[in-house]
Simulated scan of single mutants.
Amino acid sequence: MNVLFLCTGNSCRSILAEATFNHLAPSGWKAVSAGSRPTGEVHPRSLSVLNREGISTAGYASKSWDDLPVRPDIVITVCASAAGEECPAYLGNVMRAHWGVEDPAHVTGTDSEIDAAFETAYRILRARIEAFLALPLSKLQSDPLELKRALDQISSITPSV
């Protein structure tokens, strides 16, 4: 099963999700990420968070959804549409879920405040990915309605950070 984490710029949240998912996922599950308007580079603070967490950053790059190496089975958007951010709509016959997370790349303030925003985004995504991977995945692969319901419920998970 291939999971696509999708946002606009593909420099922060979707990269954090892709790398974290691949670090934790069981065999047979793989994540990719992309953006509708990719920035062309991964935000250095995203890489710093992943490195601190012991998650490999090798090979991750900001890329367009037009250049996907695989066809996704599940698309999870991570834009914070509640904050007025336009979230791309993936066109295709795939299961979709929305896990909105504020974009840490838009945070201003001190270095420690900006670092905290990246850490918060990572913690939220990691908690949701861990909840996803704790599901009975082999059973849910044959029950798309139940899988969709579970993915939608996971969107409300926000750990205290």
Rank of each mutant, 00 (worst) to 15 (best):
R71F: 05
L91Y: 12
T39H: 14
R96H: 11
A19K: 10
T108N: 14
E113Y: 04
A97F: 07
V49P: 03
V3Q: 07
Q141W: 12
P104S: 04
I154Y: 10
E18T: 09
A127R: 06
S11Q: 13
I157R: 07
S160V: 10
F5E: 04
N51I: 11
L16F: 02
I129W: 05
D115M: 08
S11C: 09
W65E: 13
R128Y: 01
T57W: 12
R126A: 04
G109H: 09
T110W: 15
I15A: 06
V49H: 01
I154N: 02
L137N: 07
V94H: 02
T120R: 14
A117R: 07
D66M: 12
R128P: 00
I74M: 06
P26T: 11
I129C: 01
A134L: 03
P144V: 01
A34Y: 11
V107E: 15
R52D: 09
E146T: 15
E146I: 09
L140F: 11
G28W: 05
M95D: 08
I154M: 07
D143P: 02
A80T: 00
L24K: 08
N2K: 14
E18D: 09
E18P: 02
E53Y: 10
F5A: 00
D152G: 00
P144T: 00
R37T: 13
D152I: 02
A116F: 15
F132S: 07
T20W: 05
A117I: 06
E146V: 08
V49T: 02
D67K: 13
L50I: 01
A58K: 15
L4W: 03
K139R: 11
K148T: 14
L24D: 06
G59S: 06
R149Q: 12
L4R: 03
L133M: 09
G35N: 05
I129G: 00
E41K: 14
K148H: 14
A34F: 12
P72N: 03
P44W: 13
F21W: 11
A80V: 00
V78W: 12
T120N: 08
S56R: 01
V3C: 09
P144C: 03
L137K: 04
M1V: 01
G100R: 06
N2Y: 09
T57E: 12
G54Q: 06
D115S: 10
L6Q: 12
C79R: 08
L50G: 04
A134Y: 03
S36K: 14
K139I: 08
N10I: 07
T120L: 14
T77R: 06
T158P: 04
G28R: 04
F5I: 03
P38Q: 14
T77I: 04
L135K: 11
I129R: 00
V101A: 08
L68S: 01
R37L: 14
P159L: 13
S155N: 05
H98F: 09
P69M: 07
H98Q: 12
R45Y: 10
E119T: 01
W99P: 05
E41P: 01
V49E: 02
S64D: 07
A82Q: 11
L6I: 11
A82S: 10
G59Q: 02
K148N: 08
V3H: 06
H23E: 10
D152P: 00
P26M: 11
D67R: 15
T39C: 13
E113S: 12
T57S: 13
C87N: 03
P72L: 03
H98G: 08
T39S: 15
S160H: 09
V3A: 05
Y90A: 08
P72A: 10
L133D: 04
